[in-house]
């Protein structure tokens, strides 16, 4: 009886390890710093996490489907530059429309190359990362862009405004997360995504058109990055032409940290949201404790490896790797 209870306790510990670590982090930080658990600070963390969070939602789908998307970083640069630059030229609504369409087009190229031509996703999106960064620089001519009438445009609502007292970017993140969760967990499309990632051959044999599913995941990922770019552009009201550099790996870290497997076929939106929040709270907590901003990278190093290690150790039932 006692043994059984112990067993189920270990199981809960290993299955919910990342959640427990998250709670420990929160408790630890709030004990050490009295500014940590204040509504203002929590809101600040959520606001900062929203951009990486929105991107991570889309990347989660791609990863569950068994692929990688490294192009989101430079796509963020391109989309932000587009929306900011076009804002003054053709007005906010058209600028947003063009930006989202451009992002979707990039996603479609990724999706066709990976889904239909069946090329390796890491290399395809690596090539796209480089190509899109180049296109962004060509578009801007190496210049940075900004919006002229920053105080009067309603475009400010996405990054600086609030709806019913909640900052808009948090609202966008939450709504998008809920929608994506429903799509992934409660629709036939969601099941196809898991099936295509878990066992591609079996998925094809059971009549799933894998190419279409992959194409859709990449387009959703690119769309999410487009949304993130609108938030970023609206918050900063300007953009450097390499603003998204390095985001692809931060976003991927958040997805992995949440517990979505790179092998595909497992993971969830809830896990990714936790991963994003952990990254956000590590950053915020360490800054509040007075550490330099780069200390968070050291902590993230340890946390990522520990999280994934514990996860797979629980699955194989032993701590250390089976190979010699």
């Amino acid at each position: 009886m006692a043994e059984e209870r112990l067993k189920s306790a270990t199981r809960i510990l290993t299955q919910r390890g990342i959640l427990i670590a998250f709670i420990l982090f929160m408790v630890g930080f709030s004990v050490v710093s009295d500014r940590f658990m204040t509504p203002d600070n929590l809101q600040a963390v959520f606001r900062q996490a929203a951009i990486i969070g929105v991107m991570a939602l889309g990347v989660t789908l791609v990863v569950i489907c068994g692929n990688l998307d490294l192009s989101v970083g430079s796509l963020l640069s391109l989309s932000t530059v587009l929306v900011v630059d076009l804002h003054d030229k053709i007005g906010p609504i058209s600028a947003i429309a063009v930006t989202l369409l451009a992002a979707l087009a990039v996603g479609a190229v990724n999706g066709l190359l990976v889904g239909v031509a069946r090329l390796n996703s890491l290399i395809v999106t690596l090539g796209m990362l480089s190509a899109i960064q180049g296109l962004t620089l060509i578009y801007t001519g190496g210049q940075n862009v900004d919006i002229q009438n920053q105080d009067t445009t309603w475009f400010a609502i996405f990054g600086r405004g609030a709806i019913l007292g909640v900052p808009t970017q948090i609202l966008i993140f939450v709504v998008l997360a809920v929608v994506m969760h429903v799509v992934l967990a409660h629709t036939p499309f969601g099941r196809r995504v898991y099936a295509s990632g878990g066992n591609p051959t079996a998925a094809v044999f059971s009549g799933i058109r894998r190419g279409r599913v992959v194409l859709a995941t990449y387009m959703i990922s690119a769309f999410c990055t487009g949304i993130a770019a609108i938030i970023l552009g609206s918050r900063v009201m300007g953009s450097q032409n390499n603003v998204g550099q390095g985001y692809e790996l931060l976003v991927l870290s958040a997805v992995i940290l949440g517990g979505t497997s790179l092998l595909g076929g497992s993971g969830s939106i809830a896990k990714t949201v936790i991963g994003v929040l952990i990254l956000g709270f590590i950053q915020n907590g360490l800054l509040l404790l007075g550490f330099a901003y780069y200390v968070q990278w050291l902590v993230t190093w340890v946390v990522i490896i520990l999280a994934v290690w514990l996860d797979i150790a629980a699955k194989r039932g032993r701590m250390f790797s089976p190979f010699a």
Binding site: S253, I256, Y294, W297, W301, V302, I304, I305, W309, P322
Partner: peptide
Amino acid sequence: WTGVDAFIVTLGAMLGIRG
């Protein structure tokens, strides 16, 4: 020792070593 995929291990290290 851990059997974690090299992609993840070195992704963490990429951030950490820069730190």
